[in-house]
């Protein structure tokens, strides 16, 4: 089944002025498309529209589909699109394990717990399940927030500069981990970044701006 994420004839306006020219983009399952552009070019606004959280002072035209399903008018919680922010945003009143359990769909308590613990072990985070976010390092928090986003079984992922706050060695390993996970899950992903090093090898890059918009097609 084709589970590509497709943006068709999208324009987003702040008042009368469009943030960027009309955008058409299809992201294949397992593909990570990178969006770059100067500040204020509408990168984060684009992510908020895809997610369903466009601030009210913006207006948008265009459609969003995931496979055959149109998402344009659905609320955030019905879209099945996870998001990874620049900050980990782990819920401070929950332990690492509880953060993961929050993301898992309903099911048997034991099965859910096992799945969350396995996910922690897979990323070398075993033994940290009872720690609260303030007792975790930056890298640990980043990995847990990634697992949390993926455990909710999303159909697509949005990455809003998730590597920008990590130091260089950590950044590289975390980047590889994120892309590998997305490929393994076979879901489309859109990455917003300011750093060219973040672009996955062979991945497509979209330049966003008021005057120019370059969208390479899938080879």
């Amino acid at each position: 089944m084709n589970r590509a994420l497709t943006l068709s004839r999208l324009t987003i306006r702040n008042g009368a002025s469009p943030l960027f020219p009309e955008l058409c983009l299809t992201i294949a399952p397992g593909e990570v498309v990178t969006i770059m552009g100067p500040s204020g070019s509408g990168k984060s606004t684009l992510l908020s529209w895809i997610s369903g959280a466009l601030p009210p002072h913006f207006t948008a035209n265009g459609t969003l589909t995931l496979g055959d399903r149109e998402l344009t008018t659905l609320p955030i919680e019905k879209r099945g699109i996870a998001i990874l922010f620049q900050d980990d945003l782990l819920f401070p009143h929950m332990t690492a394990l509880e953060n993961l359990l929050f993301a898992l769909p309903r099911g048997g308590a034991q099965e859910r717990r096992t799945e969350a613990l396995c996910a922690l072990t897979e990323l070398d985070l075993e033994g940290l399940e009872d720690r609260r976010p303030e007792a975790l390092s930056g890298g640990q928090k980043a990995r847990i927030s990634l697992i949390r986003a993926l455990l909710s079984r999303p159909k697509a992922v949005l990455l809003d500069e998730p590597f920008s706050k990590l130091d260089k060695p950590l950044r590289q390993s975390f980047r590889h981990l994120v892309f590998a996970k997305i490929r393994a899950m076979g879901i489309p992903a859109l990455l917003v970044t300011h750093d060219k090093d973040d672009i996955p090898l062979g991945g497509r890059l979209v330049h966003l701006g008021p005057t120019q918009l370059r969208v390479p097609s899938i080879e």
Binding site: G52, E77, K78, I83, D87, L89, H93, F102, R148
Partner: peptide, 24 residues
């Protein structure tokens, strides 16, 4: 952003308030 994050995980807004925001 927490509301956005909670909703992107499939929770309805009132559930995000109950489980995430009000406890904080």
């Amino acid at each position: 952003r927490q509301l956005w994050l909670g909703r992107s995980l499939g929770y309805r807004p009132h559930q995000v308030w109950l489980k995430i925001l009000i406890p904080q």
